[in-house]
Amino acid sequence: MNINFYFTLFSNCIPVKGAVRSIICDLQRGSYLFISNDIFDVLTSCQTMPIFKILDYYRNINEVELEILFNQLIEHNLGHYCENPDRFPKINTQFNSPYEILDCIIELSDCNLKYIDNIFESLTILGCQTIEFRTYSHFSIEKMEIFLSKLHLTRIRNVELIVCHSELESLNAFEAILKKYPIIETLVIHSADIDSCKTIGASNLIFTTQKITSSSCCGNISKEDFKINLPFYLHGLKNNTCLYRKISIKANGDITNCPSLEKTFGSVINLSLEQALNTIGFKELWSIKKDDINICKVCEFRYICSDCRAFLNDVYEKPFKCSYDPYSPSFHNLS
């Protein structure tokens, strides 16, 4: 080891310190590695100090131990030795996007079907890229197709369809839908008899026994749902990762931040989405980031964990449906 060199983590491998332990988030490969908080401190200093200075500064760690640590990190492809760290700048955290709305959730209903042209026109103006259609109970495929057939008039690029399993619709009909509308990335059929999944073209068809019978089924926080990628991390630094630039339309036409939130900002029956978006309070929750939320702010998972601002007593409280305690540190079973 050349102690005149630096050892730096790759700029898309971000160390995050928690209450009692830390992780390195590999935003490129979508994984994370636990490290102790002491190692977090050493690695943070490593970004600006050559190795000999680190040895000088951290008297409790010797050269052999340090080299073992670095070699482990190199093995995990998380960092490298370099002569001049200035050549490897940090990733710019300013995330710019030309879209006023990124995601829209629409509960499929006769009411929304009636106003679909207005809704899609607004979403086009707002630049919406991703849409999620949901049904909590049976909704006919013919009606669903009316929504899908108008998508090409919008700027939407990704579609997720979450529908309820029903004896009334055949599997073939769903497969035909996926073939006809390749824009649908994922079709989830909930309340199914078995869990299974297959691909049709480039789309996923997922059957789940889970029952999504109302909007209160959302908001679970679990390790399985961690999102470890650069755009998510950049959003999370400055904004709420669940609600930022999101708009939802409930089955009765109410415009809300998300289907699980009670507060409505008008109805598609008499208001455009742009108008609702500019109503006082619509963007209030957008800026609540993990760093502002009690407990989450000391949690090492805070930049890879999705958030939920619906099920809680106070908007600065950690999600009710999270069972993780960063102090213990462990996941408890929700009782």
Binding site: F10, N12, R29, N77, F88, P89, K90, N92
Partner: peptide, 11 residues
């Protein structure tokens, strides 16, 4: 499986 590491660089 293991994409090449790609990071910002300053020439």
């Amino acid at each position: 499986q293991n994409p090449n590491r790609t990071v910002p660089y300053s020439l």
